[in-house]
């Protein structure tokens, strides 16, 4: 367990020191959401209706930007090879890296969403639900993303391939994230059910993602 925390701490320190990945993700999120009203025109009703969907999809794309670096940097400098021979199982090492990705990317993006919601005239009453869905939904982005990051480890410019592999896996997260906000906006029951399913999806990806990613890394090593 100490190895897990050691790796988590190192990855967070590196993310803080490099900073560029988070800056790019937050900047991309801001630019995409800011450009949308320019494309759609200043129809406030339309904007507030599509705001949750836009915020969620832009968040998925922004998080996707920093996924390739999750394992690539360690592969390039040989750290990953040493990790394969370490006492900590590779599955847990990848879980630590995915967790670090969630803390350094998922949480900041989630915290930025309410601010961007204002730009899209999102109903203030819906903001807590928006943040709640993103907070429980974003771990799935990091942990499912680790599978894609592992599979595209050796392909140069694997970013696009990674997007093709991983984005379809995010569909359930997107559907239940949006449906929870939808139920809440109509004042209907069902928001909590969607939120629970969203949590279940995240927990399942936390449980399964590292195993699939570790298998992919071992394959790439040979």
């Amino acid at each position: 367990m100490t190895g897990f925390l050691t790796l988590l701490k190192r990855d967070l320190a590196l993310a803080a020191r490099e900073g560029a990945a988070l800056g790019t993700a937050l900047g991309f999120y801001l630019v995409v959401v800011a450009m949308l009203p320019l494309g759609l025109g200043p129809d406030l009703k339309l904007l507030s209706r599509i705001a949750p969907g836009v915020l969620w999809i832009a968040l998925l794309l922004a998080a996707l930007l920093s996924l390739p670096r999750m394992l690539e940097a360690d592969h390039e400098d040989g750290s990953l090879e040493v990790m394969v021979t370490a006492p900590l199982p590779l599955e847990l090492a990848i879980a630590a890296k995915a967790l670090a990705h969630w803390i350094s990317t998922g949480i900041p993006l989630t915290l930025m969403a309410p601010v961007l919601g204002l730009m899209l005239n999102l109903d203030i009453a819906l903001t807590p639900m928006l943040v709640a869905t993103m907070l429980v939904g974003t771990p799935a982005i990091s942990f499912l993303g680790s599978i894609g990051a592992a599979l595209t480890l050796k392909s140069r410019r694997g970013g696009l391939l990674l997007a093709l592999l991983v984005l379809p896996l995010y569909i359930p997260t997107l559907i239940f994230g949006i449906s929870a906000i939808g139920f809440a906006s109509l004042g209907q029951d069902g928001a909590s059910a969607s939120l629970l399913i969203l949590t279940a999806i995240s927990l399942a990806s936390i449980a399964a993602g590292p195993f699939a990613a570790a298998a992919a890394v071992r394959l790439q090593m040979s």
Partner: peptide, 21 residues
């Protein structure tokens, strides 16, 4: 490959591997 992180100091690099391994 050396397994050395460019953005950490020399001590931090080695201390990480010591604790991790």
């Amino acid at each position: 490959l050396t397994g050395v992180k460019a953005n950490l100091t020399v001590t931090q690099n080695l201390a990480f591997w010591g604790a991790y391994l």
